[in-house]
Design a protein around this nucleic acid. Structure first.
Lengths: 366, 366
DNA sequence: TTGAAAGCGTTACCAC
DNA sequence: GTGGTAACGCTTTCAA
């Protein structure tokens, strides 16, 4: 050894320091510490002891550069602030970090331009995979960024162009809304309002679910759809629009929890009693839905599971890439007090009345 | 060139490919692409063109290894699922990624053992700094992990041992609870209930705030404190405990949004009318608080700002480490319908009555 | 102004 | 079994 390369004055100890202290070769240290077989117990122990003594921790950056895998994945999310999304993120993070992966989270705030940038940045950081919960399904910049990826991609609740080769983990929104719709129809409602987002799979599915619900009971859909940006304001506006229609729906379905507060505001302003004068269903549960008086009927799903499945799908694809069918997770309807018989219609249709619900509010005071 | 090292069959182009295509040295490519001055326009253009043509994107891993900075930070959070925390994360993420940093988020789920592990993992990934929102303030494993860090640490809303050298970004919980308390006292309440978490700064501060509120009006604190794990169940149990006390408080303060749903459950079960028979204040706003009937009085704070300030503090410390005073952000009280005059007490004390609130519910029906 | 070469801290291939 | 040593893909002296 004619020349010591790195004197490593301060700074954390490197693998060389360990090797030196243990009096072994640097390669042996690497072998022992990364748990590869084929080292004598002798050597193994000396290395371990030296590492412990120096408080050595490997530099993952260098490992990743060499091993060509970073054990990290990127999670691109439109809005972590949304409790639904954050629970998806949490579900995924938990599964991923149990598997030894780190998660790089980026919050695009729904701005498509950012989204593409963040995706590129993650790719340059050499993430081993990507989980996406994008605002849009067809933003050209985002798609371009994704196309340049060579790592597996899992998309949650979105349908991206097939040529991306992305793997899907989806919620079966159609089923839940079908259930909800049939419930409402059996209560005698005939005209429904539905507020949804724009240009994303869940919105399309929800519309289809409601229409399917009508057809399942042999009825022709009589549906007002309002699509917007899924905000509190959107909720309020949509509800206003529904209620001021010449032929207003007697029941409204909200395709997103962000709509609830605004919608309730409009309902309250009009002094309408939910479950009586107007029935309401909201997609995804929340404390507000559970605790509102009356509680708001809900189309449920397990969001943490959605995140976990996305993580598992990604890990499987990282391990062994292969084409895959989208994974579809269930959605189910829970009737609560916000749904009641249609106001003026005493079940005059041929459809069977629903099993009597436990509510029995005096409907006086109107 | 006697030997071509990397033939780079497939895989993404490296800096060498760019250099070769541009017919320049590898160092020049580096210089041009990282925007260093001192390259002829000639060369610059050829490099840029070649890079564009190959779709070259630098490998951040290699850059980081060489530059000894990863432009990434770690965010350790007890529970992203909590809307408050997720909005803090979002605030920080936004500031950090604008500054070109990536954020590694880990969700400890409040399990201290995980927390320490995740911190170590982040450190091995050579993050340039750490933002912490830990479950506990004094977990030995977590502290040990943190002590081994050589990068700046910012702690949000926690007081960690001083020898850590961590920088603090805090909320002034004491002020908000003082305000709330004075409001309640002026309404004639004399005995208050306070539910808080365990062993964390916000809880201590909240207790102090309430006590200070009493003293500010020349009163001796008459306070029931219930500390627990800040869950829905905790909220329910605490409220039950308060209400079944031989001398029950006439107003309750909840030190955390997670408590609200449970507390309201207990209130409803007892058939108590908020703002009449019982007054209620909750720390941090939520749709449920805003939309409850009556709306729940709230101690507000700007959580996104908290995250942003944490990020800014960290960036400043990364840039130029220096001792710092904790940054304290404001908290303020908003009275809503859930607070009313103390039931049996007709302001018989010397304290001035509050400015009449606009509520005027008929308090019959009891 | 430009380029060769020496690392950054690892891993993995080869000889010994 | 063990230990050189050549990469991994980049940045940064240092000479030219």
């Amino acid at each position: 050894m004619s020349r010591k390369p790195t004197e490593q004055g301060t700074g954390r100890p490197g693998i060389r320091q360990v090797a030196e202290l243990a009096g072994v070769g640097i390669a042996s240290v690497s072998r022992v510490l990364s748990g590869q077989p084929g080292s004598s117990t002798q050597l193994t122990e000396r290395v371990l002891e030296a590492a412990r003594q120096l408080g050595y921790a490997p530099n993952v950056l260098a490992q990743s550069l060499r091993r060509r895998t970073t054990q990290s994945i990127g999670f691109v999310c439109a809005d972590i602030t949304n409790p639904l999304l954050s629970s998806i993120v949490a579900g995924a993070e938990s599964a991923l970090s149990s598997a030894g992966y780190s998660v790089l989270v980026t919050n695009s705030g729904g701005v498509a331009a950012y989204e593409a940038e963040r995706i590129k940045a993650l790719l340059q950081r050499q993430v081993d995979g990507l989980i996406l919960l994008p605002a849009l399904e067809n933003d050209p910049a985002t798609l371009a960024a994704l196309r340049s990826a060579t790592v597996p991609i899992v998309v949650i609740d979105r349908t991206m162009p097939a040529d991306l080769g992305a793997h899907g983990v989806l919620s079966d929104h159609e089923a839940g809304l079908g259930e909800a719709t049939r419930h409402l129809l059996r209560l005698g409602h005939r005209r429904l309002g539905l507020a949804v987002g724009r240009h994303v799979r869940p919105s399309r599915e929800r519309v289809r679910g409601v229409e399917a619900g009508y057809r399942a009971l042999g009825l022709e859909p009589d549906l007002m759809v309002d699509s917007g940006m899924l905000s509190v304001e959107h909720g309020e506006n949509a509800m206003e629009r529904f209620l001021s229609d010449p032929r207003p729906p007697t029941a409204v379905l909200l395709g997103g929890i962000q709509l609830l507060e605004g919608a309730l505001r409009a309902v309250r302003r009009r002094g309408l009693r939910l479950g009586d004068q107007l029935s309401l269903v909201c997609c995804d549960d929340s404390p507000l839905s559970r605790f509102h008086d009356p509680p708001v009927s809900t189309v449920h799903r397990d969001t943490a599971l959605l995140g976990r499945r996305a993580a598992e799908t990604l890990l499987a694809q990282i391990e062994r890439p292969a084409p895959s069918e989208p994974l579809v997770l269930p959605t189910w309807f829970e009737a609560r007090g916000s749904c009641g018989p249609a106001p003026a219609a005493a079940a005059s249709t041929s459809v069977a009345a629903p099993p009597a619900r436990r509510r029995s509010r005096k409907r006086a005071e109107t």
